[in-house]
């Protein structure tokens, strides 16, 4: 067969793959800059780990939201409801199985928390499916109504939590072996924070692998950029979207369990309270970008922790300041997502 068309002469270099490195560097740079300001190395280690742990938990909650937005241009203002429901669902395992939680055995603790997480993710995933069908499907493409209706959904969900689990705060004690800290040198590393970091990394790596190595993942990424073309290639983007919505909701549920255990008490507004932070994170990351969301989560959480130590008053508004700074630099967020 003849080579009919060969535009590029053989000796031209491959086009440079422009990997945008700068945002990747922000997290280590921020951490290193803060080291001299914090002064003491052990304190810095503790703060950094605390920041990373919080960042990981926020990432779990935010990643689904940003993906849902990227794929279908739907912003779920009620995403926080899934966080709350996830946390409350976990109590249905953790409270009856109190003996496993209180047992001084890593395996019993891990398995009971694992079961709680599993149940929470299944429940929030199914709830996500229902939410998509009932609340969101009728308002595709209508941003104003989307915002209103998902807000309404959140109000109703919060109230239903009161109805089902009662209006009082529920204490959610950490399992015995998750308490306390490892002391390395002079730095104290709380065990639960390390667990949160590990879980967060697992989530991030699996998302990364799914999005880069599987057909479904590639379709999701393709759909974020051009959903119409994905349909023209013969795939039902609606099915894809329902799947992503369920997965995103389940991740919010996972984040809710982790966050609830971190705070050790549950209120129905636990999700609504974190929603603002989640929004800031996905704005910083660039709406629709999972990688940007990860970096954004780390930045926001680290900044909050350092500021909390260095200048507690500034910590109150550190997220906003960070967001404004990033948006002045890149108005579309760290990783703007190419759109149609």
């Amino acid at each position: 067969m003849t080579k009919i068309l060969n535009v590029a002469p053989q000796d031209t270099a491959l086009p440079k793959v422009r990997v945008d490195m700068v945002p990747l560097l922000l997290v280590p740079v921020l951490a290193l800059l803060m080291l001299p300001l914090v002064g003491s190395f052990p304190t810095w280690v503790t703060l950094t780990v605390a920041g990373l742990a919080m960042g990981m938990m926020v990432f779990m909650m935010a990643s689904g939201l940003t993906l849902i937005f990227g794929l279908m241009d739907v912003l779920n203002f009620g995403h926080g409801a899934f966080v709350s429901v996830g946390a409350f669902t976990a109590t249905m395992v953790l409270l009856p199985m109190r003996s496993w939680v209180e047992a001084d055995s890593v395996w019993m603790n891990l398995s009971v928390v694992g079961m709680a997480i599993l149940l929470a993710m299944v429940v929030t995933g199914l709830l996500g499916w229902a939410f998509e069908r009932i609340i969101i499907r009728p308002v595709y493409g209508l941003h104003l109504k989307q915002i209103l209706i998902t807000m309404g959904g959140m109000i109703v969900a919060e109230q239903l939590i009161h109805v089902i689990w009662g209006a009082e705060q529920i204490p959610l004690p950490l399992p015995t072996t998750f308490r306390g800290a490892f002391i390395i040198g002079d730095a104290a590393l709380e065990k639960y924070r390390l667990i949160a970091v590990v879980v967060g990394l697992i989530v991030f790596v699996s998302m990364f692998l799914v999005l880069n190595r599987t057909k479904v993942g590639l379709l999701i990424r393709a759909g974020v950029e051009n959903g119409e073309m994905v349909e023209a290639l013969g795939y039902r983007i609606r099915t894809l979207f329902v799947g992503v919505f369920m997965a995103g909701s389940a991740l919010a549920g996972l984040g809710g369990v982790m966050w609830g255990l971190y705070k050790e008490t549950l209120t129905a507004t636990i999700g609504a309270e974190i929603t603002v932070l989640v929004f800031i994170v996905i704005i910083i990351g660039g709406l629709g970008s999972v990688g940007g969301c990860f970096i954004g989560a780390m930045l926001v959480a680290l900044a909050a922790n350092y500021a909390g130590f260095l200048a507690p008053k500034v910590a109150l508004v550190s997220d906003i300041l960070l967001m404004v700074t990033v948006l002045l630099w890149r108005p579309q967020g760290l990783y703007p997502v190419a759109k149609r």
Partner: peptide
Amino acid sequence: SPTPDIASAGIAYVPESMGIFSDL
């Protein structure tokens, strides 16, 4: 018929905008 069904029935499409997935 919905687009995915039409495409699955054997019609391929090259849009004017090309519809490339630039990230991939």
